[in-house]
Simulated scan of single mutants.
Amino acid sequence: MAEPVDLDTRIALVARTWTPTQQLHPGNVAWHGSGCDGAPPADVTLAGDGWFAELWQEKDSTQIWGHFSPDLSSAERDIAFDRIRAHAPRGSISVVTGAPMADTLRAAGAQEVDRPFFLLQHRDLGRLPSRAPAAGYTIVTAEEAGEAARVDAHRRAWAPARIKELLGLPVTGDEPLSGFTLDRYRTMKAVSIYRPELDLVVLAPDGGPAAFALGWLDDRSRSVLFEPVGTSPGHARRGLAQAVCVAVLSRARELGAVQAVVGPRGDDAYPAPRRLYGALGFVTLARTRTLAWRA
């Protein structure tokens, strides 16, 4: 029998099996499911016992995102992939190296393709580094900063033109504005596992937003995930991202967390996040690969 695909069900499904080497954390599902990651609505959504998948159908292929519980049997994984392939004769999906679903895909003929990949990084919260914000900057909750400042912090840090600059791509001036809006932020805050104590903003000396970090706490595994973190361009290279991340980790520990995870890009085209989390003591446990198949 197919499971419901509502957001709380997805979060609970991912939480049930989570370990530091599982690709999705409940926080990833919460962030994506609230529509805040910039992905358009999926063209097709599929679900079964222990898995769900979203499909975006493009001209020549279909992109898939989802979760497949590691305790699915080989036969159950085959059934899931057969259902996906019925909608996506040509498709691709990012999976963790060594995950059971990766074995199923390869057995069905899927091949690795060269795409940006992500790392699964982890650290315990036993002893945290000391990272105070630069002089004149203060760390407050998003509630204290105000919704407008929190949204502005995200829009500045994740503006498409800024991301192109970080990737070394040419900026034309015609880039769209960030799709993160007040309405989306409020939708995100309504997600069941959102904790306002872990939604922090760095304010500049003039009172404007300079950086932010959002942590998602999973009570079952006592783990916190960063998703997302950002610094406004005018305040970069001041250690603000490190300072606000340590503040999130400290507050998460007060709420019962014993470990933290994050999934930054791992390829050399976008090294800044990897450097940030490395400086905070995160170590890499696994990485993702993109597997693609044809009809």
Rank of each mutant, 00 (worst) to 15 (best):
G230A: 10
S232E: 05
C245D: 15
G215R: 06
H235Y: 02
R222P: 01
L225S: 07
R237W: 04
W216I: 09
P233F: 05
L214T: 15
W216G: 07
L214E: 10
G239P: 08
S223M: 09
E227Y: 06
C245I: 13
R238T: 00
Q242A: 15
G234A: 12
G230F: 06
G239N: 07
V244T: 07
V229R: 10
P233K: 04
H235G: 02
H235C: 02
H235K: 03
L240R: 02
D218L: 03
D218I: 03
R238F: 01
V229H: 13
P228S: 12
T231K: 04
E227D: 15
V229A: 14
P233D: 06
H235F: 04
F226A: 15
D219E: 15
E227F: 07
A241R: 06
R237A: 13
P228L: 11
S232T: 02
L217G: 08
L240P: 01
V224S: 13
R222L: 09
R220I: 10
G215M: 12
H235T: 03
R238V: 01
L214Q: 15
G230M: 04
L225Y: 02
L225T: 05
W216Y: 12
S221M: 11
L225A: 07
T231S: 04
C245Q: 11
V229Q: 10
G230H: 05
R220M: 05
A236V: 11
S223G: 11
A243R: 04
L225P: 02
A236N: 03
A243Q: 04
C245Y: 11
E227S: 11
R220L: 13
G215S: 12
G215E: 05
G234W: 00
D218Q: 06
S221Q: 12
G234L: 02
Q242P: 00
S232I: 00
G239H: 06
R222K: 14
G234D: 15
A241Y: 04
L225E: 14
G215D: 08
R220H: 11
G239A: 08
L240H: 01
R238N: 01
G230K: 03
W216C: 06
P228A: 13
C245H: 10
L214V: 15
H235V: 02
V229M: 13
L225M: 14
A241E: 09
S223V: 08
A243T: 06
Q242H: 14
R222Y: 01
A243S: 13
A241W: 08
Q242F: 01
G215A: 10
P228D: 11
P228H: 13
D218S: 12
V224W: 09
G234V: 01
P228C: 10
E227I: 02
R222F: 01
A236S: 10
L217Q: 07
